[in-house]
Amino acid sequence: MTNIRVLRDIAARKGVKAHEVVRRAYLACARNQTLEPQIRYQAQLQLNNFGRYSRPTTVKNRCTISGRGRGIIGEFGLSRYSFRMKALAGELPGVFKASW
């Protein structure tokens, strides 16, 4: 199941990839203390001009099955419920229900 939030996240990921190199260059300029303040300021302004979907912080790991944004188990990229369903179905190698 994909929902609009997943599609938005995919768009953000694509944007980050597309703008990453240029953004890094501006970031390095803006943070470089050996450069002229004027240049650093200009670089910072350029950084602000990038769209929303170019910042890596916009990207959020969502459940790859249900699209849920909370309760994600990072190692599998699944929400806690999808994880449970998959694990109980035996589709996650090495994962089994604890019992003692």
Partner: peptide
């Protein structure tokens, strides 16, 4: 670069 890995998430 983090972008290539990000795109491969889904």
């Amino acid at each position: 670069l983090r972008g290539p890995a990000m795109v491969r998430y889904y």
